[in-house]
Computed example of a mutant assay.
Amino acid sequence: MVRNLRADTANPMPLVAIVTGAGGGIGRALSQSLAERGYRVVLGDRCEASLTATLQTLPPPALGELWLADVVDETAWQTLAEQLIARGETVGLLVNCAGVLLAGRLADSPASELRRVVEVNLLGAMFGCRAMAPLLAAAAPTTRPASPSAPPLPIGVLNVASIFAPLAPPGFAAYNASKAGLVTLTQTLRGEWGPLGMTATAVLPGITRTGLFKTGSYTADRLAEAVTSRGDQGTLSAEFVARESLRAYALRREIAPIGRRAGLRYRLLHWLPGVVRSRVRRDANRLLEESS
């Protein structure tokens, strides 16, 4: 279901950026950064209270609109696209940041939870790209900046994946696979959209201090406590990830690890894949055994 809760269209049409998962964490930080660049941000999430809180943090005189919807609802995406077209708005950027977490051995994971993770993290992004592709393509020749004080970002999509995609730690099968799929989706879109003047970037943040771990699903209470504790110890802030993600996108990078540790591990995977994967598997399996 989609509800247009607030749309401020008093000023001349700025470029629109659509951000899913905007109710908190990295999605909120990205929304703030894009608002600072002069975009009118469509804030997407399922929680109205969280979206309202994000809207209130946008720097004035930022324009924002709440899009209360589930990213796995294909109809919601089509309705949003139709609304934007009807208002004659120009969409310059889609940010797929909505994500959910499931931790535990695959054999212990409920089928409904596995399906939900893949649908939100991957299928929702596919629906978004499918619905917004015509609007982004129409904006691709646009050369005006989003703000007089900031250079324009490329037209296209920014997909927030995870360093878990290439590392594939045990205990996160659905999350790892869905984020890896998001990377492959990005690579595919660069080929499809490139001739149309659009681009696509996938960022791979390391462990970031957000609500992802607290709101995740777990196969055991002790595992929830252990994973949440590690999440709280993450060295990255949502604001840092947002800033570095937009920098990577502005440079039109295809895949960009975010954070010093994530970057080091990503590079080492190409040179010493066996060593890196062995260490990741050992540490993750120890966590699973201690929490079982």
Rank of each mutant, 00 (worst) to 15 (best):
V2R: 14
N4G: 08
A10K: 12
P12T: 04
M13P: 11
L15D: 10
I18V: 15
G23P: 04
G25N: 06
R28E: 14
R28C: 10
L30I: 03
Q32G: 01
G38N: 07
G38K: 09
R40D: 02
V42D: 02
R46N: 08
S50K: 09
L51C: 03
T52P: 01
A53H: 12
T57G: 09
T57A: 14
P60D: 12
W67G: 00
E82W: 03
E82G: 10
Q83R: 12
I85W: 10
A86S: 09
G88K: 00
E89H: 02
L93V: 08
L94M: 07
L94G: 01
V95D: 02
P110Q: 05
E113S: 14
R115G: 13
R116P: 01
R116D: 12
R116G: 08
V120L: 02
G124N: 07
M126V: 15
F127A: 07
R130K: 15
A139I: 08
P141V: 09
T142K: 00
T142N: 12
T142C: 14
R144P: 00
P145D: 11
A146C: 13
P151V: 04
L153N: 05
L158H: 01
V160Q: 05
A161T: 00
L167R: 10
L167S: 09
A174E: 00
A177N: 08
A180P: 01
L182G: 06
L185M: 14
Q187M: 09
Q187V: 07
T188Y: 14
W193T: 08
G197I: 12
M198R: 08
T199M: 03
A202I: 08
L204I: 04
I207F: 06
T210A: 03
G211C: 03
G211M: 04
K214M: 05
T215P: 04
G216V: 10
D221L: 14
D221R: 15
L223V: 10
E225W: 11
S229N: 15
R230F: 10
D232S: 13
E239T: 13
E239P: 06
R247E: 15
A248N: 05
Y249M: 08
Y249R: 04
L251K: 15
R252N: 10
R252P: 00
G259T: 00
R265H: 11
Y266S: 03
R267V: 05
H270Q: 15
G274Y: 00
V276I: 14
R277L: 09
N285Q: 13
L288C: 04
E290S: 12
S292T: 12
S292E: 15
